[in-house]
Design a protein around this nucleic acid. Sequence first.
RNA 1: GUGGGCGUAGCUCAGUUGGUUAGAGCGCCAGGUUGUGGUCCUGGAGGUCGGGGGUUCGAGACCCCUCGUCCACCCCA
Length: 425
Amino acid sequence: MPSFQTSPGTRDILPPQAGRWRAFSAQFADIVESAGYECIIPPMFEDLGVFLRLGDATDVVTKEMYDFEDKGGRRIALRPEHTAGICRAFAQHRPTTPWKVWYSGSNFRYEKAQAGRYRQFDQVGIEVLGSTDPLLDVEVISLGWQFFSSLGLKNVVLMVNSLGDLADRAAYIEALRQYLESRSGELSDEARATLQRNPLRVLDSKRAQDKPVVAGAPTIGQFLSDEARAHFASVIAGLDLLGVPYTINEGLVRGLDYYQRTVFEFVSTSLDSAQTAVGGGGRYDGLVEDLGGPATPGVGFALGIDRTLLACDSEEVFDLGSPQIDAFIVDVVDGMAALRLSDELRAAGFTVDRAYDGRSMKSQMKVADRSGARVAVIIGQDEAEAGNCTVRNLMTSDQSIVLQAELVTHLASIVGERNPRRNTQ
RNA sequence: GUGGGCGUAGCUCAGUUGGUUAGAGCGCCAGGUUGUGGUCCUGGAGGUCGGGGGUUCGAGACCCCUCGUCCACCCCA
């Protein structure tokens, strides 16, 4: 065993998996940038207070925060999610609205690791600040939906709900509390404890014992104000218009306290672990104000990269290999030709690798084969003296001798034309 | 945080009721007549059996502690 290993809940994303992550983010960027969202990169740690707004009854704040005091005596926390930091950035910089941003990055929560759950985990997401338009909620939800579709995922379902405005929500929570307390004798010990902290979360209980009680609970729908009801109706109408399939789930509550009105979650039905939520979001109209900014509505979502990729694995989609190598250079003289030719070919736009350490031709050919290269360019003593090279097509085993000066055109005839690398002036 | 499963070479695993210098397959490296891959053959490198303590004449195997990992709960992406 090596002396050091990754800390609990963290891991190395090695090649080729790391390349898949990069492609994942790139594909996400393509989709949301086409809708006018721009990239934002907030800091990984902030003043602890920024994240306390997520809710003092949530585990994310009370148990899972990576917080510490820095050398300057500041109370700092590693971000457990992106939304709060982005709202803080909005309050700090006051960009014109609507402010549409997307992000891709790591979050940190001190939890015990499990399938699809890590202490350092990555999300991509979008946020829009400055508009209450319900059709914006629709745009946001539909972009999430489109992204899952673009990955090739079929077994993702969308659940939507409305938590109402603050007053609706408060009235509902009170009614729910009264109901649950009246039947607390039937609840599990765990659910009773949850009831004290956050009655909404009892609706999420997975224990069979709690199911009958939860099934009989009052639902949020009866508590919505006229405004909240109209807002939700517009969201539904918009989803219908776009043909985005959804399920209204009145038991859907989100884990963070800042949500109001629209909430939604994307769930993979092809994951068999306990973690099936691959993404979620909603409207958080009070958050910017809570952080000391002007009253500003907001809506957004976050998708878990790990879990979504897990879903891709189980549906056997979005499967990427390593990048294709066009040519592999085998130089058994002194390596100088390999150095020069690889440089020239790369400048011409080809992907080129080579062997090192002056190994035997047989050994270098093995490495060439393993690299998956389509062509081997061989420089032996004869070629070096004649100024040419042997070009071997590793798929067909055809072989020919060409002048080194004509290598670029010859290679293009085998693997196709490439765009030369451009140097910025 | 609670409960359970598991921790033997880079990877996947064997290791009989505790008994001599710990094995296989894959991978890696080098050869198989002196310039060539993917198949085949031969050889080689690589492990303080997660770590610490204990029981024993003797422990990879048994006991305790610890760390890590996986799974469930909790919570969430």
